[in-house]
Every structure is written in structure tokens, then in C-alpha cells.
Simulated scan of single mutants.
Amino acid sequence: MFDNALIYRAHSHFPGADQLAQLCQKQLFRACAATEAKRVGWSTVCGDQMVHPVNSQFLVLRFSRQERLLPAAAVKEEVEERAAAREKASGSPLRRAEKQILKEEVYEELLPRALKRTGHFLVAIDTQRGWILVDAASRKKAEEALDLLRLTTGSLKVTPLATRDRATDLMTRWLANPAERAEGWELGEACQLESPSGDEGVIKATEVDLESDEIQQHLEGGRICSALAVARTDQLALVLQDDLALKKVKFDDALIEGADPSDDDASAFDTEAHLHIPALAAVIEELIGLLGGEVSPVIEEEASTEEQEAA
């Protein structure tokens, strides 16, 4: 299910599952053509479903991306070799425009022979909370999925989810003082420590006792926690990042206990989706509460405008 969760606030409504599935059909994933460097699209997510509904609240899609692996360094080297050969034959250096044309020729020639790499990840739309959860390892990849969702629906305004309190403040307090930790939460075995100014390097600790004297000394020296492994009892473990990204999500085995085992891939996916996605959303909601609640950039801008008009 979700290995990561990048959380976005949607500022527009979504169509229902059936309508969204029809819209996704217009943006189906297909492999790159010989002259294409990249293709993105939607793939079936469960059986032959383009959109898989969960608990009448979540709409789950599968984003697919394929790219041709043609390193810029390889193109540059080939261009330089051909440019040198032409300059030797003509006895004069190539002009900048000629080198650009040569570069385009090399790229077009090598691209069809480049190896292809395909990746997939899930996107879950929480229609009640207005969230979009993207199982991407980076914001850049998540933005590709959001761009495709925007193209699919016709319009979509989203912003990264923001909270009133900074995640670094909460993580630093939890790391420094056990009494500060919320009930039902415990520390894992990894953290990342930075100086407030950012000019003293980053300390990454893995598979360590986070209550050790060494970690505490770094905190006493003024470092703050920018990533922290935590676990919500009987729900899941994750690494919380300073931008509210959830990485290395691992669901607790207790979530799947009692579920009917199935050899059918679609049924197994449906079972996991109904157990894991609501649990993930509930943990996110709890984290937001611990961080002082969500703040909306749109609402704040509107309030600011009203205040200015009143003034």
C-alpha cells in the first residue's frame, strides 16, 4: 500500500468515482513511443478499475510513469566527438548554432535506443477531508501526479498541507523530553538533526537509541530535529519530515489480523486498501491535531483581503 505519504489540501471538489473513472480513461498510461522521452498516465488500480472507492470516502488511483534513460553526459560526449570530427574535416570550429543542431541530432538518434524505466504509485483522494495523499518519494514526482490529476479533472487547485505549529518543534520536544510525547506514540530508531542556521551540517542517526546521551547532547547544543522515526501504537510506523512528508510508512500487522486471506490480487488489494488507507488518514489527522491544527493559505488570504477592505 502506501510507503510514503505526501499530503496536499485540495481547494476544489472532485467528481464521483464513476465520473472520475471515465475522465481517467482519456489519460490512460501507455508506453513511450520511440521518440518520446517520458510518458505519464493512469493505470488500473484494482482488477480492471481505474478508480477504486474505499468506504465511500476515498478514491484510489494508480499513477504510472515511464521514461527513457539517456544520460546528458552520454549525449554531451557523443556531441563533442562528432563536433571534433567535423571541425577536423572542415578545418574550422563549429558555430554555437551548429553545435545546438548537432546536439538535437544526437539526442533524436540515441533516444529510441535508450533503456526504459517504468514506475507506479498510488494517489488517494479523501473526499470528506479534502486531502490528496500521494505515495511518492519526492515532491517533484508528486507534482507530476497532481499535474495529471489537474489535466484529468479540468481544474485543480492544491497546496501542500500546512499546520499551525512547525513539525521541527514537535519532533525536537518529543526527542528531548519523554513527558512531551503524546499518548499512544513512541519513538523509533532514527532521526535527523540540524543546526537552526543550517550551516553546521546534518547528523543522520539510524538504528540507535534516540534517548541516548549522545543524541541529548546534540539537542542541548542547540540542534533541532528535522526528521524523526515514530510509531502510533497498533497502527503504523513512519518517519516524519520537517515538511510534513511521511516516509518509510510501515503498517502494523495488527491491522491485517482477522482479515480473510485471499489468493485473488484484486481482493487482496481491496482488503488492504480498506484497512490501511483509513488508518493512514486517521494517523495524519491526529498528527495535524498535535501540530496545532491545519491552516489554509486560501482562507488566510481571503481573511487578509477582507481586513484590508474594512480598514
Rank of each mutant, 00 (worst) to 15 (best):
V202N: 00
G188A: 10
V208L: 07
T206W: 01
E200S: 13
Q192T: 13
C191Y: 04
G198R: 03
L210N: 09
L187N: 08
A190I: 05
E194I: 08
I203K: 09
S212E: 04
D209C: 05
T206N: 12
L187S: 11
R181Q: 15
D199A: 09
E189C: 10
G188R: 12
D209R: 09
D213C: 00
E186K: 13
Q192M: 11
A179W: 02
E180K: 05
E200F: 02
E211N: 15
A190K: 11
E214P: 04
K204I: 06
E189V: 08
E186P: 02
E180H: 02
A205Q: 13
E189H: 11
P178G: 04
G201E: 12
A182S: 15
V202Q: 11
S195K: 01
P196W: 01
S197Y: 00
E207S: 14
D213I: 02
V202D: 00
A190F: 03
A182L: 09
E207Q: 14
V208Q: 14
I203Q: 12
V208H: 08
E180L: 03
E180A: 15
K204Q: 15
P178T: 12
E183M: 05
S197G: 15
E180Q: 10
S195A: 15
A190P: 08
E207H: 11
L193G: 01
E211F: 06
P178C: 08
L193N: 03
L193K: 01
E200D: 14
G184Q: 10
E200Q: 15
K204M: 08
V202P: 03
K204H: 09
L187M: 14
Q192L: 07
L193P: 00
L187K: 08
D213Q: 13
A182W: 02
P196I: 02
E194Q: 13
S197V: 01
S195L: 06
L210F: 04
S195W: 08
E214D: 14
V208W: 01
K204L: 10
